[in-house]
């Protein structure tokens, strides 16, 4: 990923109902950070997932996740829940949760 990019991440719901969000700008990162994020983005393959609306199910108190990223020329929004989060996206989400928590801590 040569061009700078932004990721907006939001986690909502859960038993505690505490929302968490972060907006990450890749060009604000030092090289190692940027490389790490690049690798997680690439591994997640997120732009190849369909952005599906969250449908009704019997899950209660699960987290909802929303990621807004630029895929090629268009910005896309992906919504997942714990039940629908693709395994390859899990490491990226974990990392973004870490960033959001760190940011709140500052």
């Amino acid at each position: 990923m040569d061009k700078p990019y932004n990721i907006f991440f939001e986690r909502t719901g859960g038993f505690a109902g505490l929302p968490l969000s972060v907006n990450v700008s890749s060009d604000s990162l030092v090289k190692t950070d940027r490389n790490r994020l690049d690798a997680l983005m690439e591994k997640s393959n997120i732009c190849n997932y369909e952005s599906k609306p969250i449908t009704a199910d019997n899950f209660r108190d699960q987290f909802g996740y929303q990621l807004r990223v630029r895929c090629d020329t268009e910005e896309r929004v992906f919504s997942f829940t714990d039940n629908t989060l693709p395994p390859d996206v899990v490491p990226l989400v974990n990392y973004l949760v870490q960033l959001a928590r760190w940011q709140k801590n500052q």
Partner: peptide
């Protein structure tokens, strides 16, 4: 916490994390 956060993250801190 009830609004989206649009804040840049200092790179040196990110690296630590």
């Amino acid at each position: 916490m009830y609004h989206s956060i649009f804040c840049a993250i200092p790179p040196y801190m990110l690296e630590k994390i």
